[in-house]
Design a protein around this nucleic acid. Structure first.
Lengths: 105, 105
DNA sequence: TTTATATGTAACTTTTAAGTTACGCAAATA
DNA sequence: TATTTGCGTAACTTAAAAGTTACATATAAA
């Protein structure tokens, strides 16, 4: 785990981290209740959460000694922006096809 | 590099691989012309391309001894599907807010 | 037909990521 | 106030990813 990355793409590369995000769709959860769902140790889950937080996928609200995790749209938006860039490509390809078909007529 | 992964999320985790995808937006390119843009060796680029292909981000058309790479929508769609799942979450959060505001009036 | 080009692959090294255990510390509870 | 709970972190190990060089091979060009 070592140094946590800030990169959104790397953050979601790990299946456990995607699973954590999936769990937070339903409820806000603290670190321990998230960790209960995994085979791995709590510190391991804790590190995953740190990576997700730094990459903008989750935010954490500290309530006493507990840390409540919830989804943060930022990270997701970063991915969307990237995907949108390629959508322009598909759209222009589609347009080219239309032009070709039009000329054939 | 070793065994190429089939996972779309892992495929785009690597910055060089995202760069390769970016290069293919403009033109279909063969392996060598893609490799020219990188500091790393050609075999390294070749392996990245294999991973991108297996994850459904690019397709390859063999023309003689050359292999022409172009974007494939499949991989991108896999990511979109994943993101859409979370969009439901944001939408329901928004709806809850609307209900709260409505009740306040 | 010799040579150059475009590639894949195997064997290896290096780097990085992911996990572990052992600890410390502050907040809640008994 | 002693104890339990909910964490973070450091030090370490293991596993996987990313890169390298050295080859082999098929196609194209001289």
């Amino acid at each position: 785990m070592s140094i946590p990355t800030l990169d959104a793409f790397q953050a979601i590369a790990d299946p456990s981290r995607r699973q954590i995000l999936g769990m937070l769709v339903k409820d806000t959860q603290n670190i321990n209740s998230l960790a209960e769902n995994f085979e791995m140790s709590r510190p391991a889950v804790s590190k995953h959460i740190k990576i997700l937080e730094m990459a903008g996928f989750i935010s954490i609200q500290e309530i006493g000694r507990e840390r409540h995790c919830f989804l943060n749209q930022e990270g997701f938006n970063e991915l969307k922006t990237w995907l949108n860039y390629f959508d322009k490509f598909w759209n222009s390809k589609l347009k080219n096809l239309e032009i070709v078909l039009k000329n054939k007529k």
